[in-house]
């Protein structure tokens, strides 16, 4: 489905990610994991053509991005837009249909119905008339998700969709991702919470500027590979993890 070959990205001639090779053959829920500054978002943007490649190629089903845009869904980081922008929740989701509409055509009744369906899937059906700034952080994240659904994509790319959302939204999001995978779609998710990785993803990409490993979660998400990815930082993370685990048992029962 996706073939990333030897991709390097540089900002001001300073490489941020090096020689990344990545292939995905079948629908998977893929977690992209690594420390802060590892270039996870940059990798996503490189695949999507949002940052220029210093070298390498990206192909979708064997063809370049420019021919396959309709197959791609995108959920950017929530902070990347101005939420005071004067559009309603439904308007924002409708933007997902613009790619297929093409120049000059306005969204009509079909697009509206479809956008409502997408809103319903993320549990926001009754908020469609709200201005987007009047939503909570978790709801805004779900609007972005619904907009990506409205793209009718085959491969989804999501940049930290779980950042700063409440536990309820997080579980709604992951139920949705799982059902997308079951419908035969691939989903790439930049993820920062190591604790939930094994529970959520069936495929993991570990990276720290270069690719550490990519494969099924069971094979790749191992202690020594994490050690390679995080280096000395993992010790601190482990300590914090212990502390959290000792009291999060109550939370899991909720």
């Amino acid at each position: 489905m996706l073939d990333v070959h030897d991709v390097t990205v540089a900002y001001h001639r300073k490489p941020v990610i090096w020689n990344i090779d990545l292939t995905l053959e079948e629908p998977r829920l893929v977690g992209i994991v690594g420390p802060n500054g590892a270039g996870k978002s940059t990798l996503l943007k490189a695949i999507l053509g949002l940052v220029p490649l210093a070298s390498g190629t990206v192909t979708f089903y064997g063809r370049p991005l420019s021919e396959q845009r309709k197959l791609i869904g995108y959920v950017p980081q929530r902070e990347s837009v101005d939420w005071d922008f004067p559009v309603s929740v439904l308007d924002a989701v409708l933007m997902g249909t613009y790619g297929r509409l093409g120049w000059f055509r306005r969204p009509g009744a079909n697009e509206r119905a479809w956008a409502r369906e997408c809103l319903d899937r993320v549990g926001l059906a009754d908020l469609e008339r709200r201005q987007i700034g009047q939503l909570s952080g978790g709801q805004q994240q779900r609007v972005f998700l619904a907009r990506a659904l409205a793209q009718r994509a085959e491969i989804y790319f999501m940049d930290e969709p779980m950042a700063g959302v409440d536990a309820a939204t997080e579980s709604i999001i992951f139920d949705l991702l799982r059902s997308l995978r079951n419908e035969g779609k691939a989903v790439f998710v930049v993820h920062h919470d190591l604790r939930t990785v094994p529970r959520y993803f069936d495929h993991v990409v570990l990276m720290n500027m270069r690719l550490i490993a990519s494969g099924p979660t069971g094979e790749v998400f191992t202690a020594d590979r994490l050690q390679t990815t995080y280096g000395g930082r993992l010790a601190i993370l482990e300590a914090a993890g212990e502390a959290v685990r000792s009291r999060s048992t109550g939370h899991d029962q909720l």
Binding site: K45, L48, G49, L50, S66, R69, K70, I72, Y74, P76, S80, V81, D82, F85, V87, D91, A92, M95, Y98, G99, L101, W103, F104, R105, R106, P107, R147, Q151
Partner: peptide
């Protein structure tokens, strides 16, 4: 008037617009 939809999209979220191929 003609480019209402396109201007709206690019003013709100240019990166998303680029991913869609605009």
């Amino acid at each position: 008037l003609l480019l209402y939809k396109e201007f709206q999209l690019v003013a709100f979220d240019p990166a998303f617009a680029r991913v869609q191929g605009w």
